Amino acid sequence: MSSTTTGQRIVVLGAGYAGLTAAKGAARRHAVTLVAPEDRLLHRVRRHETAAGRGRDWPAVSELTHGLPVTHRRARAVGLDPAARRVRLDDGTGLEYDTLVYALGSRTAWHGVPGAEQHAYSAERATELRRRIDTAERPGTLAVVGGGATGIELATELAEAHPRWKVRIVASGQVGGVYSARGRAHVRRVLARLGVAVHENTTVTEVTPNGLRTTAGPLGADVTVWAASLEVHPLAAEAGLAVDEHGRALVDDRLRSVSHPDVHVIGDAAAVTVPGAGTLRMGCATALPQGRYLGGLLAGRTTEPFAFRYVVQCVSLGRRDGLLQVVGADDSMRPTVFTGTAGRLAKAAIVTAVLHSLK
């Protein structure tokens, strides 16, 4: 422990955007134990590039925390006892804390669809998906389930990287339905240009080794990618923290659990409500500011409540195109969009800034 740190035991669960940022900020004043099984940053907003074989190794956690009093425990939290202020790890050991930062994020939700988890690749398995496509005897049909940003990015990236494959995107509602009319229209144009077949208002009822069963009939697929939605890890609810109907921990304006104030919850795992913005959606755009704020709060650099407002949403559309959608402070769509090269460069700049902020 450096001479500038206190004796307070701070444990951070999760080394994603929120957890890493909070750990680095808190380490300006405290010694921090960061618990995460990964040795490298999981650069989630670029998993579609990994799936298409265009990704690279992201920085090691040790590199991102170099020079700071942060101890990285490569383990997974499997139990939490708030009364004893103790975390149980999957290596059979435990950690006691004075302050806990819970930043376990979210994961792909399968929604109980038969065969989905067994026969589909989630974004978390992007490397396996890349190998499956690269080792196929011949090109086939690839189905992406999910019409949100993750599904759109995967469909466009894969279609561009593998033009001999037939790619289809399947959505229970509209593809890109969250965006403005101009934004949705641009997404549809790019999908058409890349030859991606669009199946909207089509709910998947089962995933099989040979494709999908849907409310609109069967759809063949040699490879299925599942990008329907996200869910939080159940650990917070299992430990008795107050959560909402989605399992996200309820927090106050300092990002403290409303039921256990010695536990701060940030990122996708937290239901953060901000005046003027509402309850924040999951994503890098909200996780990083929360981590930055909490790091400052724990280091004593701020005492103000957490504040946030939305500015834009962005989505990659292959390597040559993108969409930057201007939004209001409450994330409501505005008519203004930037597309094509401007949209691509804006998205690339934002993603690069994310990485630089972590360094």
Results as ranks from 00 to 15, higher is better:
189 R>Q: 01
206 E>A: 15
196 V>W: 04
206 E>H: 11
124 E>P: 02
173 G>D: 10
176 G>V: 05
158 L>T: 09
240 G>C: 12
187 V>K: 00
203 T>A: 04
200 E>L: 08
229 S>P: 06
175 V>H: 13
187 V>F: 00
238 E>R: 15
183 G>S: 01
177 G>I: 06
126 A>Q: 11
239 A>N: 13
144 V>L: 02
158 L>N: 08
196 V>T: 07
180 S>Y: 00
221 A>Y: 06
217 G>L: 06
220 G>H: 10
192 A>V: 03
166 K>Y: 04
240 G>H: 14
142 L>K: 06
126 A>S: 14
125 R>L: 10
137 E>P: 14
164 R>F: 10
168 R>V: 11
140 G>E: 12
185 A>P: 01
174 Q>F: 11
210 N>P: 06
196 V>K: 05
134 D>R: 12
210 N>K: 12
126 A>T: 08
192 A>C: 00
234 P>V: 07
209 P>T: 00
219 L>V: 11
183 G>E: 00
227 A>P: 06
139 P>Q: 07
245 E>D: 14
192 A>T: 10
232 V>N: 12
245 E>M: 03
234 P>G: 03
137 E>W: 07
157 E>A: 09
154 L>Y: 14
242 A>R: 15
202 T>Q: 13
135 T>G: 08
230 L>T: 08
234 P>N: 10
117 E>A: 15
168 R>N: 09
206 E>C: 02
153 E>L: 03
207 V>H: 00
239 A>M: 05
145 V>Y: 00
128 E>F: 07
